[in-house]
């Protein structure tokens, strides 16, 4: 029978998990970006309490941590939908009609960039180059790049998502 152990000061599980993630990485110099990636990979976004927790862990000011989170496009401070769809807006894709594709996909999903569909399934984001510029236009659905895209192909991918096959 274990003795009664007094509880540590109350801390939300989110804060505790961020502290654990930081603990694994903070010894290496310049650890803030790797930690923020770990936080976003874990939660799907960077929760609001992150700046305060990491400021303590890394002996930085909250402003410094907040400044880093807000500087980089990759870090999101609100939860995304179940899937993230990036549309490439860079020049090579534009030369192959990505502006029209972009307009059509927005219409199809009935959302603009940085928004999530009403059913929470897809968040739409712009991206500037996926490095597949010889097969433009390109989109990225979660971690997979899809080249030579059309609206019809996008619809098919989204349909597969719905059926849980993508």
């Amino acid at each position: 029978m274990a003795a009664h152990i007094p509880l540590a000061p109350v801390e939300s599980s989110t804060e505790a998990r961020i502290r654990t993630l930081a603990g694994d990485l903070k010894q290496q110099p310049g650890a803030l970006l790797p930690i923020l990636h770990a936080v976003q990979d874990t939660f799907g976004y960077v929760p609001e309490c992150t700046a305060a927790v990491l400021a303590t862990e890394l002996a930085l000011s909250r402003a410094e941590v907040h400044g880093v989170i807000s500087f980089y496009h990759h870090f999101r401070t609100r939860p995304a939908g179940a899937h993230v769809l990036h549309i490439c807006r860079a020049e090579a894709c534009q030369s192959m009609g990505s502006a029209a594709l972009e307009r059509d996909i927005k219409q199809l999903l009935n959302i603009d960039y940085h928004q999530t569909t009403a059913d929470g399934s897809v968040t739409l984001e712009p991206v500037y180059c996926l490095g597949n510029c010889a097969c433009s236009p390109n989109i990225r659905l979660d971690d997979a790049v899809h080249g030579r895209m059309t609206l019809a192909k996008t619809e098919r991918l989204l349909q597969l998502l719905k059926e849980g096959q993508a």
Partner: peptide
Amino acid sequence: AGAYICGEETALLESLEG
């Protein structure tokens, strides 16, 4: 983390420093 400017070498170094 998705910032074009970090391809500039000194911005890249700042980013590597966290």
